[in-house]
Design a protein around this nucleic acid. Sequence first.
DNA 1: AAATTATTTGGTTATTTTGCCAACTAACAA
DNA 2: TTGTTAGTTGGCAAAATAACCAAATAATTT
Lengths: 106, 106
Amino acid sequence: MNDKIKKQYEARAKIIKAMAHPSRLFIIDELAKGEHCVCELRDMIGADISTVSKHLSVMKDAGIVEFEKRGLQVWYHLKVPCILNFFGCVEDVMKTNAKMAKQVLK
Amino acid sequence: MNDKIKKQYEARAKIIKAMAHPSRLFIIDELAKGEHCVCELRDMIGADISTVSKHLSVMKDAGIVEFEKRGLQVWYHLKVPCILNFFGCVEDVMKTNAKMAKQVLK
DNA sequence: AAATTATTTGGTTATTTTGCCAACTAACAA
DNA sequence: TTGTTAGTTGGCAAAATAACCAAATAATTT
């Protein structure tokens, strides 16, 4: 792997890493339905608002979400809805994993 | 987020985490073209074979790859090719990010 | 049986990530 | 202007991840 190729994979990994956390996946799902302010997401997740804010900032940095300030609140929305296509595949993997687990128990 | 929902998102995150590393993304791309033994991947990546083996084991645990031992070698292949659909979207994100970066420079 | 090759596993260290708290900023309300 | 609310940022401690080396295992060859 030469340096240019390596950099490319690092850039891809950054985007995928930005999704690779339970709370962040939850946020993506919620934003897929519509925009939310940070305090709404905090209530849904039940973590400190600073924690939620940092999760959002990771995704913002990766180019997955965007925000808009309106009054006191900051409203976030998905920048790239195609991310959702992917979740179907993740679901498939999970189903297969579940099947394998059952077979082991037999 | 109740406990059941939380567990679901953790399961999803496990799968996505298993992809969230430059070398592992590279491996997925290579296995998409056809199976490879660990030593081939080691040569392509240029890391210690134990490092490569551990990357493969993370993906095996997540249900992304499978392997088959033939003689001295262990041959890995993709279990869920749908993962590749996703990379198109990641590419879109990267292009958008690149555009934004250019605009900042203007 | 001894040596060789491919891979995995255990252990260690360095780095990154996470989550909370406290302090700060920004917009608004009294 | 003072207070209040929403959000971000910095700092810190705990947890998770990554990469290497060394040792163990497994199949093959000599």
